[in-house]
Nucleic acid binder design. Sequence first.
RNA 1: GCCCGAAUGGUGGAAUGGUAGACACGAGGGACUUAAAAUCCCUUGGCCAUUACCGGCUGUGUGGGUUCGAGUCCCACUUCGGGUACCA
Length: 924
Amino acid sequence: MEYNHRVIEQRWQQYWKDNATYHTVIDNSRPKYYVLDMFPYPSGAGLHVGHPLGYIASDIYSRYKRLQGFNVLHPMGYDAYGLPAEQYAIQTGQHPEITTRQNIARYRSQLDKIGFCYDWDREVRTCDPRYYHWTQWAFKRMFDSWYDNTADKARPIADLESYLAEHGTEGLNAAATKKLNISAQEWNDMDPKAKSDTLMNYRLAFLANTMVNWCPKLGTVLANDEVSEGLSIRGGYPVEQRLMYQWCLRVSAYADRLLRGLDRLDWSDSLKETQRNWIGRSEGAQLNFHVADTDIDMTIFTTRADTVFGVTFMVLAPESKYVDMITTPDHRAEVDEYVAATRRKTERERMIDKKVSGVFTGAYAINPLSGKRIPIWVSDYVLAGYGTGAIMAVPAHDSRDWAFARHFDLPIIPLIEGADVSEASFDAKEGIMINSEGPELNLNGLTVKDAIARTKEFIKEKGIGDVKVNYRLRDAIFSRQRYWGEPFPVYYKDGIPTMLDDRDLPLLLPEVDKYLPTEDGQPPLGRAKNWTTPEGYPLELNTMPGFAGSSAYYLRYMDPHNDEALVSTEANNYWRQVDLYIGGTEHATGHLIYSRFWNKFLYDLGLVVEDEPFRRLVNQGMIQGRSNFVYRIKDTNTFVSHELKKDYDTTPIHVDINLVSNDILDKEAFRQWRPEFNTAEFITADDGIYRCGYAVEKMSKSMFNVVNPDDIVEKYGADTLRLYEMFLGPLQQSKPWDTNGIDGVNRFLKKLWGLFYKGDTFLPDNSEPSREALRSLHRLIKKVTADIENFSYNTSVAAFMICVNELSAMKCHSSEVLSQLLILLAPFAPHITEQLWHDLGNENTICDATWPVADDKYLVEDSVNYAVSFNGKARFNIQVSPDTPSDEVQARALADPAAARWLEGKTVVKVIVVPRKIVNIVIK
RNA sequence: GCCCGAAUGGUGGAAUGGUAGACACGAGGGACUUAAAAUCCCUUGGCCAUUACCGGCUGUGUGGGUUCGAGUCCCACUUCGGGUACCA
């Protein structure tokens, strides 16, 4: 019988489906293990070979854990809300739900062909009302919560209301948009609208006027992680800053816990570092500068409290509220113009344009330590969103301040001994302070570190400032002016935002005639008919962003059909958290922050039992495309082979990689590829071979370098695809897809088959396995077990190849050895192993087998190879038995005939014996 | 600028501080075949040596260091990836 992957794979996929082999239920008699993939957005392009990389890795781990006796939860679903379906809907009028459903069907059929062990009964889709019910429900809970900094957790908003009624804001330590000062009396006298506005300052889901990233082209706001370098991640359109009234999540309240929580997670250091940077904790001081001739105090944030004596001017962000308050009449026009000009620029323009610009406000501040009058300027190099939107400028020790001072000819006072600030600022936080003596404080002679500490102490004592920790992490903007997302469970009662009752959830996404904003600029939901509560109150027109649905999906998999709760206590107590999460690094600052926030919030409310959602996380690398190029001589239809192109003036053109094999172009196929190439001529070397150039790029249709897994499965089979993707290189590493090596893996499977079948003869028998065969097997068990734990799947595959080669060479037909080999290979290549397992006469599926344990007695070597070196150089080998004592090894090494040659006329200084490794003889 | 990570044959990549280059691809040679495909065997870092078997030198981006011994550890640098940024 020949190895026929088509028949085998189809047969067992059907069998697993019919027998619900991978259906998972709570089983208290077995330990659980939860393996999760980052669920995909079902795009119209379908899967390419890069997508399954992580899925294969997690599938291997799931099957491995299952064989080890764990009750493994391994689900899959779809992150189904998103922009592409909506953009497509705008162009075609096709409802995004239809597109999404089609794309999901395509994804599913592609995934099924690869033979994953998902429990599809647990599938979730974020756009399914039975799913987004719980997204809305969680949002409602956030609206009804505030963050108590003292208890360091979220608490019900009702607690805050009673506190305010009794104490006002006196002694309140809450995460807030801005610090309020309200007495109990004032609170109690407020009308409902004023109370609502006040509570918005504390709610974890709140409405606020904030600077948002507005993307005009997409017609919506975007969160910080959805913007990179001033362009939207989706589409790459320019983004500008705009003040808008938006729903936000108070993620910043959790900044410190998100940071501290990282220490307990088994994630890669680089990913944790990325999150640390994104959270951006910085310790410093807040300090008040009095504005001369007014009663205004301006608060600034600095990490360099030691440099206050070097402050020669102050700078406000153009958006700062202080600008309006302090600008003097004679500078008003100039300042207004500058502020307006800044506002006109997009974020990107502001970033690109690094020219120094700014205007003087006419106002002066008093340096609180030196008492000097210093001018206050406005400049766009100060950001409104960080700190207080105002800075004290220390040109001697900050390069941005230095550039500004130089440009506007402002004084520069060096504060650190030996620092030359005539050509550049001295930014390092080290040295001895000078020029830092005021009426009440003298820092001269202190180190920078001590000076910072001393100044912080001083400003605290004097009440002119406070020690303060600042975070870069912003609150998440949660409104999107789009159609294809979760509707907010919110209506407006007399202008007061109010939550729908739990009974009225889910609030279904309404139908609209078009997926565009309304004529008067409302979001698409403005087009929905009767978009009100039964009482006639208007419903919220925004929808939630993509990360809303993906923030708690791992919880829903635990109990996906529950209509009473997001997850039952029973299911949550059993499955607890994700033990292994596999996905790309691109979610480091988005999904992985939001999920942790969301989970911590639910934890605070006692709704889930674990504080962190993902215990262990592995990032798979990206599989890039390998594009091929042909080189057309300018203004002709003649193409020149890669090695000759330097002699011509050519334009590189992407060529479909399906027309190329090992970088050699199929010229005839190329001519037929596109009409304009029908008459193509080729210039090649004498061998007549046209060689293409190549480049590693993103896998995409436009570069004609997409490899569809379906084609690989059709030609080689899913088992080959799975093994090959793992064999390609370390899982965590990005690498280009290269189909060239796939034959080797396919050959390996054929060899494996050859251990069982020769023609129609079934070879396995009950013969006693040889010691060599057992050693080969147990070496494999040891290697593969260790490799799977470390995700070194590429070396596992190599180990399988070696073992199969060895077993073939020794013609091992022992079914005892062969069945163990199959169990080891089953996670990697489930179909062929299932078939052969069945052929060995097993009734159960191979998933019910038990993972073998390596027995050291087979691993003991007959002899140990010691390398003998002299002064660490030339070497020869001696063979001794494994239990030979070192003394004897040493004696044997010195007595060896080969040693005589080296030792002639030399003195042995010492001999070093490293157990089982080397004997080094130091000679003189 | 800052923070990570990487650099090993023609290629993808292996190597708890202990015989560098596992495994695979590609390439070259051979067997089988009328031929091709498939399959199998041999060779394959570079240089040198050779009548065969033995062999010699050199070699993991560069320069130093630690060590009996360094691809691996330390310092400095170069290049390439990734993340992030007027974050005060």
